[in-house]
């Protein structure tokens, strides 16, 4: 069993061919362990969203290997990939995270119901997940258009982590929120990672990247910089004293 929740090994993604080919990712390698929150930053068109899509199996790489919890995604059929997304991977997008025709609780319960879990059991899990992210029972039965922006993102995070899922892929989750709501969402994500989940966060705001353990910089599809793992106080002291 791999120690990493997510591994990208020399992943390349090319759209189109010949003169019209676009290299969205060029030989990207990345690892993500449980309890770790990694931020991915870079200018528009640098391949951040493509990295997230490839990491979650929504898109297939042109080359390289993507491993989630020890499973090589390339070896999986479309049905098996869908099952992996139900049980291992959760997504949070900038906006339009929730299905308008389902209530908050039903949105959170959706992956469990699609996995064959009964309606009542799914609802129980959903309510528990909503409670963990600070969305009360009163809001659970409201539709997305009846919730505030911050509440909607909390519900999306709850859905991303309901059940046995351990990997959260968040694409600009605070992009449509005010700064206070955005901070509270990141605080929640940070808390979930501290509790054992692994998170890959795409953002273009440095202050939000500050919540991460590590920041990876992308430009033109390639990793150009990596801050390395966050150092604790002991490690910093050891660095400073050279011992």
């Amino acid at each position: 069993m791999s120690q990493y929740v997510l591994e990208l090994r020399d992943v390349t993604r090319v759209h189109g061919s010949g003169d019209a080919a676009v290299h969205a990712l060029r030989g990207v390698s990345l690892t993500l362990a449980a309890g770790e929150l990694v931020a991915v930053m870079g200018p528009s068109g640098s391949g951040k969203s493509t990295l997230l899509n490839v990491a979650g199996g929504l898109d297939a790489p042109s080359a390289g290997v993507v491993v989630v919890e020890g499973t090589d995604l390339q070896q999986l059929s479309a049905t098996a990939l869908a099952a992996l997304r139900r049980r291992s991977i959760g997504y949070v997008f900038q906006d339009y995270n929730l299905i308008p025709a389902l209530t908050a609780a039903e949105n959170v319960a959706l992956p469990r119901e699609l996995d064959g879990i009964g309606a009542r059991a799914s609802r129980r899990e959903a309510l528990a997940a909503l409670d963990e992210v600070g969305v009360g029972a009163a809001a659970a039965d409201r539709f997305p258009d009846e919730l505030a922006g911050g509440q909607r993102q909390r519900v999306a995070i709850a859905r991303a982590l309901v059940g046995p899922r351990r990997l959260v892929l968040a694409d600009e989750p605070t992009g449509a929120l005010d700064s206070e709501s955005g901070e509270s969402v990141l605080r929640l994500l940070r808390a979930r990672c501290d509790a054992g989940a692994a998170g890959l966060l795409v953002t273009h705001e440095a202050r939000l990247a500050g919540w991460a353990d590590r920041v990876v910089f992308l430009r033109d599809g390639a990793v150009v910089d990596d801050t390395g793992p966050r150092l604790d106080a002991q490690a910093l002291l050891a660095q400073g004293t050279g011992s």
Binding site: G56, L58, A78, T79, A82, A83, L84, R85, R86, R87, Y91, Y96, N97, L98, I99, P100, A101, L110, P111, L114, D115, R159
Partner: peptide, 14 residues
């Protein structure tokens, strides 16, 4: 919406 269902683990059949 259908993309969200796929992202949440829905298969093509779903």
């Amino acid at each position: 919406e259908l993309g969200l269902v796929a992202a949440s683990g829905g298969s093509a059949g779903d």
